[in-house]
Design a protein around this nucleic acid. Structure first.
Lengths: 125, 125, 125, 125
DNA sequence: GTGGTCTAGACCACT
DNA sequence: GTGGTCTAGACCACA
């Protein structure tokens, strides 16, 4: 189960916010393999947004193999996609951290502030 | 002085990449107060992009008080680069951390791995 | 609601005139918080100018926190229009008074005549 | 006699700042009819700006009949230009006050603040 | 449908 | 030479 919420002022598109929350849900174990998500229509109504926006979020996660859609039945959490190999993984980690840190630095954040913020969110991933 | 580079595949608009690099230059001390930036024309040629794209980046930073322009003379690093307001700063930090964590989570990295990697790079920022 | 009009002979750029009229609308209460502005396309057609010119006006006010935009949805009056900082405000007041007085002086008006005229119009602002 | 000063951060072009200061000087009686202004070259050196910028200021005031240039001799304050007729004058006053007040209002200044600021500068015109 | 980005090219204002 | 404004038109991203 998962409760969705959208922040219109975050600058992050709605479809991405939804996709992120599902990803977090999977990573944190809140969403179990095989669990059914709300229908596109139901979630659109609940969040008071356009139906296409929800569909786009689901579609993106389906492409990434996080979700599986069964025509006429619903959308379900799929078995975890295969992980990267160990050295690939380390390279990727280095890459995304570099990217992230350079953006953060350009806004004047210190590494201390960043680690602090990420630690606060440990539960999420 | 500062060397600009654009990554057309990052999904980040050119003008934003330029602006970010200038912000980073200021934050890191590479760009000193009063220093003149390349002319819009020169930078446009160097980066092989349109003049208006560079102008847009400079304009945005001028509105945000990072830069000062004197028509007919050039564009300069502002005497008093602005501090973000505290709530603005927190919002920005939350936003970029969310974005980062969502990417990291989708690769299956744990928060422990991430904090570890970032701690290793403390020196860089 | 707000009716826009452009004076091509004023010497003030179109995008600035649009931005000023929106600022005025907000300051005077004609534009309420959360109210949607005309779409960039609609306003461009109405004013018979290029779409980018309207977009530039909106963009500037968005950077200054007067407006908020939601891509795909529209442009709205910001929930908390920013107060200028006190020194900024004083600088602006000095600047526009200087400009005005220099014009008035060149027509030979005395400060008495000017204050008189402005006092008569107190009600308007 | 008159002492010139330029504010690069006012947003007002140098040539206009110079012209305004001369106008003020004339209106306030600091500059007498027939008095000689600094040469273009001398003023450019004094203000550390381009020679053409000073020339432009003088040129503009010459066109408006505030100054007279005698080839090879220098630039002088001319006899006051003829004033507008009374009804023309009132119309002009109304027009420029309207324009000014609407700009001021759009920045959120009250009529009280404006009158205050203008009163402070009574001496200037 | 909405706004965002970018280009190419013109012309203007200022130094 | 510098930056500023505007146009026309294309293509993308989002709801």
């Amino acid at each position: 189960m998962i409760v969705f919420s959208l922040d219109p002022r975050s600058g992050i598109p709605y479809y991405k916010q939804i996709a992120d929350q599902i990803r977090f849900g999977i990573a944190s174990g809140n969403l179990k393999v095989g669990e059914q998500l709300p229908t596109v229509r139901a979630l659109a109504v609940e969040l008071k947004i356009n139906l296409n926006t929800v569909a786009k979020a689901y579609k993106e996660l389906e492409l990434l193999k996080f979700l599986e859609t069964q025509q006429g039945t619903g959308t379900f959490i799929s078995a975890r996609p295969p992980e990267l190999q160990e050295d690939e993984k380390q390279k990727k980690l280095t890459a995304i951290c570099s990217e992230f840190l350079s953006i953060a630095a350009s806004y004047g954040f210190t590494s201390h502030e960043i680690i602090n913020e990420i630690s606060k969110r440990k539960g999420n991933i």
